[in-house]
């Protein structure tokens, strides 16, 4: 329940809070729902990225990286917990 609340909070926080706080909440929520990091990254770029400001939409790129890391960590912990 708490991770669902954090996920919804992360989806709304780009409108209200500094991007760093949004990133922290998204990383915590992605421990349970890895897609949250990717979606929040897309959302931040949809709101604030404009062509020419940087070469890449870095929020989306970092969202994908965090999502992949979250998936790998979740798989590792599940396997470790099952085998132990």
């Amino acid at each position: 329940m708490i991770f669902r609340f954090l996920s919804i909070f992360a989806l709304f926080s780009p409108f209200f809070f500094p991007w760093l706080y949004t990133a922290v909440v998204a990383i915590i929520a992605s421990a349970r729902y890895p897609l949250v990091a990717f979606i929040v990254g897309i959302e931040i770029d949809a709101l604030y990225y404009v062509h020419g400001v940087t070469s890449l939409p870095y929020a989306s790129v970092w969202g994908i990286i965090v999502m992949i890391l979250a998936i790998l960590i979740r798989r590792f912990t599940r396997v470790y917990l099952i085998t132990s």
Binding site: P18, W19, Y48, V53, T54
Partner: peptide
């Protein structure tokens, strides 16, 4: 409407 530090880029909306 929006400014840093909401925006990670130095852009204003």
């Amino acid at each position: 409407l929006a400014r840093p530090p909401q925006s990670p880029y130095d852009t204003l909306l």
